[in-house]
Computed example of a mutant assay.
Amino acid sequence: MVEPARANGATLPVAGGEITTEWFVGPIEAATQDVNACGEETGAEPPPPRRSEELPPLFRLIPYLRKQLTLDRFATAALACLSIATLLAIWYFGTKYRFEFYIRFKNVPTPVEVLEQASQVGLSQKYLINVAISLRRILMGFFIALFIAIPLGLMVGRYRLARDLSMPVVEIMRPIPAIAWVPMSIMLWPNNEAAIVFITFIGAFFPILLNTIHGVRSLDDVLLRAGRCLGASEAQLFWNVILPGSSPHIFTGLSVGMGVAWVSLIAAEMISGQFGVGYFTWEAYSLVNYPAIMFGMITIGALGLICSGVIRLIGAQAMPWLAYSHGSKK
């Protein structure tokens, strides 16, 4: 028989006898008392874990940087630096030793001379005004081309009637280089500023239009039939199927169009402009200032690189699914 609870603890029957609960309750109570005493000594409970929002801004950037600075990105940056360093090395040694073998480096300024020119002109008011005016012209012409070419390309790629009406005119005007439009644009528009923006628009318009048409035409018909089976209207098909499906081609056209727009803008500024990076470069040529010519060329390349990089960045944010598509990573 098991006796009722004793003063010091209850007893439990076990094989071969009985055991009191003090055998395992006692150490647990002692440990609990030690924990309580520790809390009384410190005077407060242990602090809760710190949330990321309460961390300083610099520490909150660490997880983001760990995610972004992957081995592939580091290798890409290293290869880009290597290619630029190779180009600079060819320029440096070619101008240092005055290399002449069909290609002549005799009159080409050295990197040191161009750097000195940049330190003298780079922060001057005249140079900054020229850069600002070129940026204003390129953005105006490019965005006008964007807002016209993308809707038109979607319509032409989607509907046969629009394609039959517009493609003959497009194919006739597309081979005409933007520089050939300079005399006609001067006669068409009331001032040189509008003429230069129009030439920039011409340079960006056709690459954006043709890539948009190609994106719509290459869209899988299964996606369109699936949308119709789910009850999507024509407007919903455009917004949810056609536009996302053709977005990679559209952003390719935007990137190519930005490059062609810069080429067209610089040519127009050299011929009929009074301000801008192209005019700055042509003026340096007229004054036989070779370091300024090279500095103007570097400025054009840097501005084009920044504009194309912004387009690629926007495209990556607008199309996150491409990071997981087949062929996006090699």
Rank of each mutant, 00 (worst) to 15 (best):
A162I: 04
A302P: 00
G141D: 10
L115I: 06
L219Y: 07
V263F: 05
I179R: 01
V256W: 00
A89N: 07
I196F: 06
S264T: 02
R98T: 08
L115N: 08
L243N: 03
Q68S: 10
Y279T: 05
K126E: 15
M294F: 15
Y285N: 12
A10S: 14
L313F: 14
N289K: 11
L139R: 01
G157S: 11
R60I: 00
L71E: 11
P57R: 12
Q317N: 06
I179Q: 11
T20E: 12
Q274P: 00
I208Y: 01
L322M: 13
A204T: 04
V169F: 15
G301T: 05
S247V: 01
E193R: 03
F142H: 03
I202R: 05
G301Y: 02
S185E: 05
H326M: 10
C307H: 13
Y279N: 12
P57N: 09
D221S: 12
L265C: 10
V216R: 02
G203A: 07
R66G: 06
F142E: 06
G245V: 04
I172R: 02
A204Q: 06
V121Y: 04
V310F: 14
T21R: 00
T42S: 11
I172P: 03
E234M: 08
L224S: 09
A15W: 12
V256Q: 10
R60V: 10
K330Y: 07
C307N: 14
L237W: 08
M294I: 09
P4V: 08
S308V: 15
V197P: 01
V222Q: 14
L154E: 09
E45N: 11
V222I: 12
L305I: 06
A226I: 08
V310D: 09
G259V: 06
